[in-house]
Design a protein around this nucleic acid. Structure first.
Length: 570
RNA sequence: CGGGCCGUGGCGCAGUCUGGUAGCGCGCUUGACUGGGGGUCAAGAGGUCGCGGGUUCAAGUCCCGCCGGCCCGACCA
């Protein structure tokens, strides 16, 4: 490609209001342009890198025997009704009508459609199957953000495994797990695979692949020592034992004027430190009142609550509802003597004595509370969000909580979709059994942005050779100089013939402009061809990743460059 | 969906409080000098000030409504 005739719209300024670094850089370097919130155009530069990502994913999918499909992204209502997701998915799905008034949806994912195709299978002999596609997904995100990291329209590689039973699914799942590890290694990511909540997808197990990054929006707990890793929605931890005193024969009410927070009560004369307090949260669950008890210094994980408590609707109670149920305002709430309400408590409170909690009377608390004796706990659950410094549940070493980008997610689905779509086969004994499915997703644009998050510096992007839009830029310092021009053209030709993806910067610009642009865009290798080098019979090779420079004798320059590039392709 | 901020040449912004000829930087075009890290000078092009309505002699500026974008939160496969 000749830079002088290419559409490479680099900018001198950062886009306004952009938060994620990858977004700023991808816009400035001319890889993407926004059409509207959550929808981006890819420029030729952006598309080239996106295709590299796609190619790597495709290679690894083919490597585990997957077969590529392409399914529609517009679907009829009926197929989504069969799985029940027409209703359960809610506002996240774009819906529209055609001229006849028929209801249609834009696919958020393709379990239903692949399961529908799978219903053509008749025999266990045709299993297992691994099917995949690259297709645009539409999700009406409440808040698109951070450029490509969270959008409403994106390309996903989604694959689906079809097996005769759970044992087969386990194998298919493991294959995908390994393929995903290879994919992310090729992207240059040091991912952490974590247990995750399956959410609306259903199924009994899911693994998320997380990349530690400040631009992320998911939190995981990770133990460097033993490798334990889990989304905070699921993570557990070990806490130091707390020795409680004997306490009192019965709870004793005491005055706490103006005390409304855990912290304030901890600081008050005669109060109690946070770990000796019982925090009482009030939720409305299907019209009933639910009291959730946690240690004063612990935070509730709503996802853990949702995962463990069956409910149609669950939300924090309104102030009025709290007043009605407990007769007090937040700050003085407690569960003592409230046995008529549904009370659940976090495991960390089990067996605790001599605790302090609200007296359900504004300005008063109770001390000497013995949970087993004084509170009618209906269920003990793990409801606490873990935090940095707590003990790893496997090895007890303190672990850390990190912000991460979810770069991939794989699910064991079971038979939910195959049953709904009538995808079943006959087994060896002639009985009809539903196909056991798994589904596996990687968002291409998000991964593109994640590569930038993980590979940039103060002047621009540092693409790994694998994903760079071009591998080499030949920077002709002085294109009007005949010798300079011709040397550049020759090298450009040679590299192209050797299969290197090369762009020649033949613009009539000052050298500084070309250097800055090349660095902003992040082309892994730059060959500088100028009068100075030519006088010494050398080209200068600069590696973007570390800025290292090498003087190459002109006669062997092409070979050396090809070798360097091939060395980093994998 | 709640809270906050914003919408003015391609990009980044000032001007809005206090109504009176639409500005700056970068980029772009042409020319000259330049030429190994975003150079200098000169001359240009480019704007229904997000949209609609209202107030006024006069609206980028004031009022009402709408649309769009960003950030925080909620939500999220």
């Amino acid at each position: 490609m000749r830079w002088s005739s290419a559409f490479i719209p680099t900018l001198r300024d950062d886009p306004a209001d952009a938060e994620a670094i990858s977004h700023k850089l991808l816009v400035r370097a001319g890889f993407i342009r926004q059409l509207m919130a959550g929808h981006y155009s890819m420029t030729p530069l952006g598309l080239r890198s996106l295709r590299k990502i796609e190619a790597i994913v495709r290679e690894e999918m083919e490597g585990i025997g997957a077969q590529e499909f392409r399914l529609p992204c517009m679907h009829p209502r009926e197929i989504w009704e069969k799985s029940g997701r027409w209703d359960s998915v809610g506002e996240e799905m774009f819906r529209l009508q055609d001229r006849k008034g028929a209801d249609l949806a834009l696919g958020i994912t393709h379990e239903e459609i692949f399961a529908h195709l799978a219903s053509e299978l008749r025999s266990y002999k045709s299993l297992p199957q691994i099917w995949y596609q690259f297709q645009t997904k539409f999700r009406d995100e409440a808040r698109p953000k951070s450029g490509l990291l969270r959008v409403r329209e994106f390309t996903m590689k989604d694959s689906y495994t079809l097996d005769i039973d759970d044992a087969g699914l386990d194998q298919s799942f493991e294959r995908h797990l390994q393929a995903y590890r290879r994919i992310f290694r090729r992207f240059g990511f040091d991912v952490v695979a974590v247990e995750a909540s399956s959410g609306l997808m259903g199924g009994n197990q899911s693994v998320e692949f997380m990349l530690k990054s400040d631009a992320g929006e998911d939190w995981i707990a990770h133990c460097e020592k033993c490798g334990y890793a889990a989304n905070v929605e699921k993570a557990q931890s070990i806490l130091p034992e707390i020795e409680d005193g004997e306490g009192l024969a019965e709870p004793e009410k005491f005055s706490t004027p103006g005390i409304k927070t855990i912290d304030a009560l901890a600081e008050m004369e005669g109060g109690a430190e946070a770990s000796r307090q019982i925090k009482t949260l009030v939720y409305a669950i299907d019209g009933k009142t639910l009291l959730i008890l946690l240690r004063g210094d612990h935070q509730l994980s709503e996802q853990k609550l949702i995962d463990q408590v069956e409910a149609g609707e669950m939300r924090a109670a309104e102030p009025g509802e709290i007043q009605a149920a407990l007769g007090a305002s937040p700050g003085s709430l407690g569960a003592v003597g409230k046995g008529e309400l549904l009370i659940i408590a976090d495991e960390a409170l089990r067996g605790r004595r001599d605790m302090v909690t609200g007296a359900n009377e504004d300005g008063f608390h109770l001390r000497g509370v013995d949970i087993d004796r004084d509170i009618d706990v209906k269920a003990w659950l793990d409801l606490r969000e873990v935090s940095t410094g707590e003990g790893c549940p496997m090895c007890e070493t303190p672990f850390s909580v990190h912000k991460t980008i979810e770069v991939g997610h794989i699910f064991k689905l079971g038979t939910k979709y195959s049953v709904a779509m009538g995808a079943s086969v006959q087994n060896e004994s002639g009985a009809s059994v539903p196909i056991t499915m798994g589904s596996y997703g990687i968002g291409l644009e998000r991964n593109l942005a994640a590569v930038v998050e993980a590979n940039h510096d103060s002047v621009g992007i540092c693409w790994p050779v694998n994903i760079a839009p071009y591998e080499v830029v030949v920077t002709v310092v002085k294109p009007k100089d005949v010798a300079c021009h011709e040397a550049g053209e020759r090298l450009y030709e040679k590299l192209g013939e050797a299969g290197i993806e090369v762009v020649i910067d033949d613009r009539d610009e000052r050298p500084g402009v070309k250097f800055k642009d090349a660095e902003l865009i992040g082309i892994p290798y730059r060959v500088t061809i100028g009068p100075k080098g030519l006088a010494d019979n050398i080209f200068e090779l600069v590696r973007r990743a570390d800025g290292s420079k090498r003087d190459l004798p002109i006669e062997h320059a092409a070979e050396t460059i090809v070798e360097a590039v091939l060395d980093e392709r994998f």
